[in-house]
Design a protein around this nucleic acid. Sequence first.
DNA 1: CGCTCATTTCACAAATTTGTGAAGTTAAGG
DNA 2: CCTTAACTTCACAAATTTGTGAAATGAGCG
Lengths: 159, 159
Amino acid sequence: MADDDPLEDYEERVSPFVERFAADLTEAGMQRMASRVFACLLTSDDGALTSAELSERLQASPAAISGAVRYLSQVGMVSRQRDPGSRRERYQLHHDVWYTTLLNRDQVLNRWLVTLNAGAEAIGTDTPGGRRVRESAEFLEFMRKGLEDLLKRWQSRPP
Amino acid sequence: MADDDPLEDYEERVSPFVERFAADLTEAGMQRMASRVFACLLTSDDGALTSAELSERLQASPAAISGAVRYLSQVGMVSRQRDPGSRRERYQLHHDVWYTTLLNRDQVLNRWLVTLNAGAEAIGTDTPGGRRVRESAEFLEFMRKGLEDLLKRWQSRPP
DNA sequence: CGCTCATTTCACAAATTTGTGAAGTTAAGG
DNA sequence: CCTTAACTTCACAAATTTGTGAAATGAGCG
């Protein structure tokens, strides 16, 4: 039998998932509150909630929500919208959050590649260490390109 | 003109790369000292150094090195070897560090998938939130599989 | 033009992470 | 066995991160 009270329903069925998935994300390096906010948005009807709603569901202060959203906004996972004629803000998951997030991953890889290639140069590829650094760059470039292709393939996948 | 003193050479040419790449890794979520140790090993002749060598190059205490190596060993990036007849231990980068590290990444993705699929079930795919969670899992499964294929392709690449 | 409410910023306390020196452990070498 | 070198563990101090309440900001509404 389904539960009719939305908040109670959240606590019983949704919250366990939110907290567990947030833990997964945190373990992988994301800030704790940002992980919780992201996971919570993921489970919402429109992929969007107000600060007050997040605050209630996550039992966290508005300040904490604000900080988390600022971070998620900076890394392009969430956009802030204003219901016209309201002073409430809605924090909306980017439509293709996962897709765009992995695109960002690609950029991170690119920074690594710059560092590695410059490093190989500085150390000198006439040394074993320099060569290992160069080979690392080659492997990561292979993966970066592959990731890029994968993302393209996802975009043009049959519906 | 090349520098003949190994340590001086390290400080001038190698250390800047080690510190910068370690910073890249740390930013991506790896422990700071573990990042430094990993980057340092990457630049070494054999991909292996003793605790004393790491300690000197990184200007860190043996205790810090020990902790970092324990972590790197746990996540399978470094193996500890014993030169027979010596009481020194060598911390050796796994031959295909990058490859195996990305394989681990695959495992992380798998954990996420378990969480997401269980979550979709619990929330109910008759709700928008549940569906969004399910779709997240589908996307990540696509990427996981693609990553797996990519790694296979790397292994069987022409030399 | 204020008034008011939603959000942000700030200062701070709590919790966590990080690295160190010192003591402890283990194993090679006499 | 006993010494000693090499690493690990432990207890703690420093630094960083995290989240809170309270004050400040600013956008809509009258």
